[in-house]
Amino acid sequence: MAKRVLLIEDEPNIIEAISFILTRDGWTVHTHSDGETAADRVRQLPPDMIILDVMLPGRSGFDILRDLRADPQTETIPVMMLTARGQTKDRDMAMRLGASHFMTKPFSNAEVLEHVRSLVEG
C-alpha cells in the first residue's frame, strides 16, 4: 500500500508540482490549504508524513506543528516544514517545536523527494 503524504500549502501551483512528483514516485498525496483546520485533517487521515508550509491562511505552520507534537495521536508523524523565510530564528523555532526537517523556498524537486523518502523510509 502506498505511503500517504499530506501536503499543507496554500500556493496552488506549488501544490500541483509537488503532488505530481510525489505521485509519480509512488506516494499517495493528500492536500490541504487552510491553516485553521489543518490539524483536524491530520488527525482524520492520519498521514505517514506531512509537508507543512509556515505561512498559511488562518493559522501559522508553527502553531499547527505545536498542536501536532502535543497530541499523542500525531506526535510522531514526521513533519517537513517549508518556508520562504530562511532566517535562523525561523529554522530554530521549527526545530525547537519538533520539526523533522526544515526546507527554504525555492527548493528543488530532487530535494523534496530525497527528504520525503528519508523521513518515512529512514
Binding site: 500556493e11 501551483n13 506549488i14 508540482a17 512528483i21 523556498k105 528543488s108 524537486n109
Partner: peptide
C-alpha cells in the same frame, strides 16, 4: 516587505518546481 518577499519566493518556487518537471520528464 515580508509579504512581498514571500510572494516572490513562493512564485519562484512554483516556477522552479514546474519547469523542472517539464524539463526532466
Amino acid at each position: 516587505l515580508d509579504t512581498a518577499l514571500h510572494e516572490v519566493l513562493s512564485v519562484v518556487t512554483a516556477i522552479r518546481s514546474t519547469a523542472s518537471i517539464l524539463v526532466g520528464s
